[in-house]
């Protein structure tokens, strides 16, 4: 007769603080928001409307136009990060990890510092730098004889979003750099020495040996970028305001949600439609993460050293 296993209370006790805090601050509000999105106000009472808010969001051209515009802008914002932030971050990490580089610690710190700055500071400083009136950007371009290239980038529909995306890249490039740098450092010397014995050095060593070994780290960075970008709000709000000008060309899901939920100027807040937008954002991010987890991460090959 098997003796009953003692109840392992310590597991519950140790998990409790994290579970409680996470539930109170994340799980409950998340389901509260999703729940709220199924209601609306009729007169002064809250009534259950099922998916009617979502039907309005996707069916009413006034809402859907704004939603798709915001989603499209968000996708572009993400694309710029994937095309610029991550490759440049990897390149910087690769350069930093070359043993011959002097003052590596200085570069590492200098490139990482913007990441710890507040969005408010970054937004404000870049607005000043790029200001056509007081900014130093026109002067600097003039110095190298390219003043004709200057435009009030943040004020033009065609450039504003890309400019903001690049500002965000500037701020956060330290994150992929550090993660990849750590991944590169964790590659054992034996592997690299063996490669050298086989005559694989320099760039081909990077492409053939190091890159495959850091692919899982790149995957993690991509998914972090994805989640971060689709939740982004602060930089746009600080630089362009809640109306995400010029002409909504920098409107992303976060600013769209803010305007709807909390209201703006004479527009009163609409928590029900706001929750519907939040629900849609949650769905999009969940979908993206699932595609990554099941479609990509399971296929990444891992190496054990």
């Amino acid at each position: 007769m098997a003796s009953r296993k003692p109840v392992r209370w310590h597991i519950a006790v140790f998990l409790a603080p994290a579970v409680l805090v996470y539930t109170a601050l994340m799980i409950v509000p998340l389901f509260g928001t999703l729940n709220l999105s199924l209601f609306n106000e009729a007169g002064d009472v809250r009534v259950f409307v099922g998916l009617a808010n979502f039907a309005t969001l996707f069916g009413d051209p006034r809402w859907s136009e704004q939603f798709w515009n915001a989603l499209g802008n968000n996708a572009w914002f993400f694309l710029i990060h994937m095309l610029v932030q991550n490759p440049v971050g990897i390149a910087l990490a690769a350069i930093l990890s070359t043993p011959r580089l002097r003052m590596a610690a200085f570069y590492r710190t200098a490139i990482f510092i913007p990441t710890i700055l507040s969005f408010v500071i970054v937004g404000f400083v870049w607005k000043l730098i790029l200001s056509p009136i007081w900014g130093i950007a026109p002067g600097m371009l003039d110095f190298i004889g390219l003043e004709s290239l200057f435009a009030p980038w943040l004020g033009r529909e065609e450039y504003a979003l890309t400019t903001l995306a690049l500002i965000s890249v500037w701020q956060f490039i330290g994150i992929p750099m550090m993660l990849i740098y750590a991944a590169l450092l964790s590659i054992p010397d034996e592997v690299l020495e063996a490669a050298e014995m086989d005559g694989i050095t320099g760039w081909s060593q990077f492409w053939k040996i190091k890159l495959p070994l850091i692919l899982p780290a790149i995957g993690i960075i991509s998914i972090l970028t994805f989640v971060g970008n689709f939740n982004a709000f602060d930089l746009i709000y600080v630089a362009q305001g809640a109306l995400a000008g010029p002409d909504f060309s920098t409107d992303i899901l976060g600013t769209f949600l803010y305007r709807t939920f909390f209201g703006f100027q004479l527009q009163l807040g609409d928590p029900y439609m706001g929750s519907a937008i939040a629900g849609a954002m949650f769905g999009i991010i969940l979908l993206g993460v699932c595609v990554y987890l099941f479609g990509i991460q399971t296929r990444l090959r891992r190496y054990q050293f």
């Binding site: 607005k127 200001s131 056509p132 007081w134 435009a151 009030p152 004020g155």
Partner: peptide, 16 residues
């Protein structure tokens, strides 16, 4: 309006 008015903010205008 001044050059680059597209990116000119309210405090910018006051200061100008």
């Amino acid at each position: 309006l001044g050059d680059g008015f597209e990116a000119q903010t309210y405090p910018d205008s006051q200061n100008l």
